[in-house]
Design a binder for these strands. Sequence first.
DNA 1: AAACTATTCAATAAATTTATTGAATAGATG
DNA 2: CATCTATTCAATAAATTTATTGAATAGTTT
Lengths: 222, 222
Amino acid sequence: MKKRDFKDKVYSELAKITKALANPHRLVIIELLAQGEFSVEQIAEQTNLPIANASQHLQVLKVAQLVDISRKGNFIYYRLANSNVFKTWKALRELGVERIATIEKLVKDFRKSNFDFESVTIDDLVRKIESGKVTILDVRPESEFNKGHIANAISIPIDQLSSRLKELSKRTEIVAYCRGPFCVFADEAVAILLKAGYKATRLEEGFPDWQIQELPVEVSLN
Amino acid sequence: MKKRDFKDKVYSELAKITKALANPHRLVIIELLAQGEFSVEQIAEQTNLPIANASQHLQVLKVAQLVDISRKGNFIYYRLANSNVFKTWKALRELGVERIATIEKLVKDFRKSNFDFESVTIDDLVRKIESGKVTILDVRPESEFNKGHIANAISIPIDQLSSRLKELSKRTEIVAYCRGPFCVFADEAVAILLKAGYKATRLEEGFPDWQIQELPVEVSLN
DNA sequence: AAACTATTCAATAAATTTATTGAATAGATG
DNA sequence: CATCTATTCAATAAATTTATTGAATAGTTT
C-alpha cells in the first residue's frame, strides 16, 4: 500500500467514528449509556425520540462500534462499547465548555436563573469524604443507581425527594449528584433541599466521571 | 429557559463542534497544526488540497473556535485554539485504534509490509533517557523542529537522512520520532538506519503527545 | 494610490445525513 | 405452530455537507 492511500484510509476511518458522534441526539444517547445499559424503548423515552428514530441512531453508533448490544427476553439492551467511548465524550464535552462561550453561558445562565448556588468538584468531594461527614445523595432513577453509584451514596430519585426528606439529616452537609454536568436533577435536588433548610450543594460532574477516575463505586444486585 | 430547551441547545452546540472535527481532511489539518502554526498555503500543500478547499475547511474549524489565526505579512497563520483541541483529537485517535479493527489492521499491515520492526512508547523513551545513552532523532521538516521538539533531540529531516548519516553514532541507540502515530517519517528513518547498521527504533506517538504530557521540550529561535 | 497576492467568498452540483412513516422481521411466549 | 412485541428496515423528502470553479476581497508592498 502506498503511503498516501494508507493515510487516507486511516483518517477516513477516524472521521467515520467522529461522524457517528456528531449529532446532538447521539451525544445524549452516549451520555445516557454512560450510566449503564438501556433498551431501545427506554432510550427513545429518555431522549424524546420516536422509537424508529432512536433505533436508527443506535444503528449508526453500532456500525461505528461505539456501542454493543445484548438481548434479554424480548428487549435488546445497548451499552457503551468500552470506557474510551466515555473518555472521548468527556474530552468533547470539556472542549466545548472551555472553547464555546455559548455553552458556558447557556449553562451559567440556566443555573443562575433557575438555581443560584455553588457546586463542588469531584476533587472537593473526595476531600470532604476524607475529612469529615458528608451525605452523598444520588438523585438519578433508582435503576441507574442500582447499575452503579458512588460508594456509600444513598438513593432518592429526584421525583421522590420532596416526600422523602425525613430520611435525610439536617446536621450533615449533603452533596447531590446525577448523570453529568448538563443533567439538572442535582440542581433541582439542591433547590428542594436548601428550601427545606438542609445544607446542600451539587457535584459538578456525574457518576460516570467519578467511575472513570477509578474512585470507589458500588453496584446493587437485583 | 425550560429544561428541555436548555439541554437541546447545549447538545446541539456540542454536536456542532464534533461535526467540525468529523471530516478526514480536517482531522489531518488538526494533527498538522498540533506541530505548530502554518499558513493556508502550507496547509493546502501538506494535505494535498486545493487552496480554496483548504481555506473552506479552515473556516469550518474557525467558526467552531477550534483554531485561531494571526497575520504575518501577506500570510495568515492558523494554529490550534488550545491544548484541549489536541486532547480531543488524541481521544478520538485512541478510541479509533482501539475500537476499529480496520484501523489497527491498516496500521499493522502497512507497518509490517513496509517496515517490520519494534517501536517504543513515550514511557519507554523516558526510561531510556533516565537510565542511559540514547540519541533522540527528530525527522520532521526543520521548520517544525524549530517550533518545538523533544529536549536534546537532534534534527535531521527525513529527506536529508541518507546523506547525513555520518552525523550519527553507531554505538548509541537511536529513537526516531515525527508528528504522530500515523506519520511514516519515523518508519522510513528507522528503515534507513537499520539498513546502514545503526541500532534504531521509532517512537509510537509524536511530538505533540510528548508535549501534552509536559515532558521537557525545547524551541529553536529563528 | 496602484499593483500584487494570499486568502476568502459565492454559486452550483453531487453526495450524505436526517426525520418521518409504515411495513417487515426476529425471536420470545403461549 | 401461531401469536405477540420490541426492534429494525425501507422509502421518501428535506436539510446539510462537500468539491469545484472562478471571482472578489483585504491587506501588503511598491
